[in-house]
Design a protein around this nucleic acid. Structure first.
Lengths: 349, 349
DNA sequence: AAAGAATATCGAAGCGGTTCGAAAAGAGTG
DNA sequence: CACTCTTTTCGAACCGCTTCGATATTCTTT
């Protein structure tokens, strides 16, 4: 078994000192081109790779980025956070980082502090989704760069990567308006969630821009949650008022599907007669009939953006706070009545 | 900003030497109970945690387990491998390891060797799914412990964690038999896949155990792939022979759904008249009507088993090869006609 | 050509642990 | 009580790399 080469071997064989080899390794200035070339040759020859551990110990950089998500978020059926994680994973590779994933419970508990924090084994932390304030405070205390995903904190200035919720609502309402709808209802579910609120605001703003009335009886904001059943109940209300909506925009797909469920059960033809658009682009939207039109969120990009930002923060040692907004896209399927010909195709897909 | 305590601080404050503190830290023998207690007290007092990097450098253990999955496997719509990964993640935590995930292409390429291997930053590697032989050979050369998940290698002796495919088939066929079916068809799709083959063998064996004939015209093994369309085509054949099956067992859910599709289109009532059981328990099985009965595979357990095994291998420095078989479960829903009362409940779920 | 500035290279001191052999302290024994 | 044999504790070397200050070299400038 061949011995694994160390920087010493490279130094000896190249007739340069340890220090010079190290400088080459790290692409630092003040090394002659000759030296650089020669050292690099030897490195290739030996198949040398510096050890993470040794490097980390000496340089106080672990080369890892922590990724924290609350257990309730992560274990949800929808792979939203899984996708975000994958996004970070792939982007991290480009920047030569590894992602260390850990779930914690929502509220801060010292007993749950991730090992990578205790062991000083992460150069920064990405947090996905809403999380207890204590967590963020803890990491700020440790002077670790932090990037939030899909969760903004008004109190403390922390960098964040967010979904463009308002633009999503705008896309949906615009699309409905352009298809001739004017009585457009909105199912918010629970307005205390910041994303939902933004979607609501986007809805209102767009309605007004088109000179349309935001009718109170066509907006449901009083649910406890934002589940399918809430959409069902909301539809119950929306469709029993005088002059019911000809289109519904739901703040998420689950509620949109609940809404469709009610409509189908009560003889309102989804798509043809009345349009429905959701938000999130969950799998289930593909399995309902007609398939749900929705606003697609590029989860992977949320992740990759966060890593890119994190890499900058670590490199520049800056603590400048930035907020990145990731664009969404309108996905037109059959539930909004403007893509009828595709309706039959999807069946076997 | 308080300075981060080191082992030296602990030593000084406790009036023991570095070495003794280190022994306590690692739960090594030959330390008096008194010393152990006192050192531990100081550790708590100081909130001391050894640094991964320092530890790793000195002990030649990274504390990481690499997780390799081919990109084509990992980017599939079904979260099979994602779940496996999560399984490893959670189990790893218990053993104080971190999982470093990387995707590679199926065939071995030196340009794609994961960084954690080059940088000697993993104590072992878990590989999920079929992968090019070169990869495994490479890791064996590096003398790294390897555990395969859902993929066994006949040539080289490598530990593996496998799904109990045969038992799954047994469960399915037994259930159908117990519900009075005797003409039970099987849709294999592509038999070159080892899992499919095992399922086929389980099917045959169980049929014979019940004294039932394995009719060639009720078994489809000639597809190129194992997708929904293959199930559809298989059904086309199965249901146009004399004495068609009263029950179908498909080697995976996708094909089972395709089969159901055909049946529904051609007036064969699924569940009531003819039973269908799939394999894998994919999401989509919940969204078809009637919902698909299937064999559930505990993906997380595949992952956690692999990590447990890996932890053993690292600890014991053993290279004993083990094969762990993870049991599967029969999930009875409505497509096999024996759970009718639940049929209406699932609608809103 | 000499002095000064800029650039290359090097030596040595860490980084924060583990580990091994030696020394010290206890325990057991005749 | 002196003498082994264990058990406990300790000192020092070392893991593989970075970094800083010192030294050597080359380039400018006058």
């Amino acid at each position: 078994m061949k011995k694994i080469p160390t920087i010493r071997d490279v130094a000896q064989r190249s007739n340069y000192s340890l220090s010079t080899v190290s400088l080459v390794l790290n692409n630092k200035p003040n090394v002659s081109e000759t030296a650089r070339r020669e050292v690099r040759t030897i490195i290739d020859e030996l198949g040398y790779h510096p050890r993470r551990n040794a490097r980390g110990l000496a340089s106080h950089h672990s080369g890892n980025i922590g990724f924290i998500v609350t257990d309730d978020h992560f274990s949800r059926a929808e792979p939203f956070y899984t996708k975000i994680f994958l996004g970070t994973e792939f982007e991290a590779r480009k920047h030569n980082y590894y992602i260390l994933l850990t779930t914690v419970s929502r509220s801060f508990r010292t007993s749950e502090i991730p090992r990578f924090l205790l062991e000083h084994n992460a150069d920064g932390v990405i947090v996905a989704g809403e999380i207890g304030n204590g967590w963020i405070e803890y990491m700020m205390e440790q002077r670790l760069p932090v990037v939030l995903i899909d969760y903004a904190l008004s109190r403390r200035p922390v960098s964040a990567v967010l979904i463009d919720n308002e633009a999503g609502a705008r896309l949906a309402v615009d699309h409905l308006y352009n298809n001739g709808h004017t009585r457009i209802g909105f199912i918010a579910g629970n307005m205390s969630h910041p994303s939902i609120r933004s979607r609501y605001e986007g809805y209102c703003e767009t309605m007004m821009r088109h000179g349309l009335l935001v009718r109170r009886d066509l907006v449901c904001t009083d649910a406890e949650t934002t589940a399918q059943a809430d959409g069902y109940r909301a539809a119950q209300r929306l469709f029993t008022v005088p002059a019911p909506p000809t289109a519904v925009f739901a703040a998420n797909d689950a509620m949109a599907i609940g809404c469709m469920q009610f409509m189908k059960e009560h003889g309102v033809t989804v798509g043809e007669q009345t349009a429905v658009i959701g938000f999130d682009n969950i799998e289930a939207g593909l399995h309902v009939a007609p398939r749900l039109s929705t606003i697609g969120v590029p989860c992977e990009e949320l992740g990759s953006n966060a890593v890119r930002r994190m890499a900058e923060m670590i490199r520049d040692k800056t603590s400048v706070v930035t907020t990145t907004v990731v664009p969404v896209e309108l996905i037109v399927r059959e539930s909004c009545g403007s893509n009828r010909q595709a309706a039959s195709v999807g069946a076997l897909s």
